[in-house]
């Protein structure tokens, strides 16, 4: 499934502390272009923080982040160009959708294109409509987000991020706030996105997605990577006690 051998994302010794608490304990990670990486692990293990450090929503305090040709060293203050370059290459989808409630669905998707990429309103709207069709919501363009179900809002949020043509998409528990059947429609969109060759890092509790859609699975605990490997191997035949315990706990739920 992985389209190429090109490494798109490389993290070296990425660390993050909140006061005395070590949340990321020197993470080394490589993600190839076209790879879909699922991150699983108990809550509080640093999964969200890892994602948020990758696009610098949370500044890491040690290590380096490389995305495509952008290199960011946590030791130095980040430059404006590096930050906007990073944000342009990395799209993010949040657990709570975070649509802008005072704008129509179409405006939600078009405004960032106009402000960030300098597209004209016409170009932006055309791209927005194309993506709304792709996530199956073309008929919602003129609605306000509040009139859409949670599953629809999350698909709109995915379209909004895709509209900026990112090279990698980060998902932080995109279905955790949804009823199972609404989660399914979001997962279907994500599966289609994975097939299309998008590079994705997905923090999830959906074991089916981790096993069947992602190429690689990584288990985190206490700010460290417990193990990482091809998804089927890890999910069916985990090596580490910590992973076994976590997977058992998930199955028992």
């Amino acid at each position: 499934m992985i389209a190429s051998d090109k490494t798109l994302i490389r993290l070296n010794g990425l660390s993050k502390h909140y006061g005395r608490l070590t949340v990321l304990d020197g993470i080394d990670l490589e993600v190839k272009a076209g790879e879909v990486l699922a991150i699983i692990g108990p809550s509080g293990s640093g999964k969200s923080t890892l994602l948020r450090c990758i696009n610098y929503l949370e500044p890491p305090d040690g290590g380096t982040i490389t995305v495509d040709d952008i290199v960011i060293d946590a030791g130095n203050p980040i430059g404006r160009a590096a930050l906007s370059g990073l944000r342009r290459r990395v799209g993010m989808v949040f657990q709570s959708f975070n649509l802008f409630p005072h704008m129509s669905v179409l405006r939600n998707i078009s405004l960032p294109q106009e402000r960030v990429l300098g597209r004209s309103r016409k170009e932006a709207d055309a791209r927005s409509m194309q993506l709304l069709s792709r996530v199956g919501l073309a008929d919602k363009a003129e609605q306000f987000p509040i009139r859409c179900s949670g599953g629809q809002q999350q698909r709109i949020a995915i379209a909004r991020a895709l509209a900026l043509d990112p090279e990698v998409m980060l998902f932080d528990e995109p279905t955790s706030a949804l009823d199972p059947e609404l989660g399914l429609e979001v997962l279907a969109v994500m599966r289609e996105l994975a097939k299309s060759g998008m590079t994705m890092i997905v923090v999830t509790h959906e074991m089916g997605f981790a096993e069947n859609v992602s190429d690689t699975v990584m288990i985190m605990a206490d700010g460290n990577i417990v193990e990482k490997g091809p998804s089927k191997e890890i999910m069916r035949n985990p090596q580490h006690e910590r992973t076994k315990r976590f997977l058992r706990a998930v199955h028992d739920r």
Binding site: N55, R87, V90, G91, M92, F94, F100, P101, V116, L164
Partner: peptide, 27 residues
């Protein structure tokens, strides 16, 4: 205004001033 909206604007790469003008001030 929920902080998630500011984070979304930031993650989308919108500038501070745009975030203020289009997201925070109107609401």
């Amino acid at each position: 205004i929920p902080s998630g909206q500011r984070e979304a604007a930031e993650a989308l790469g919108m500038k501070r001033l745009d975030e203020l003008r289009f997201i925070l001030l109107p609401q």
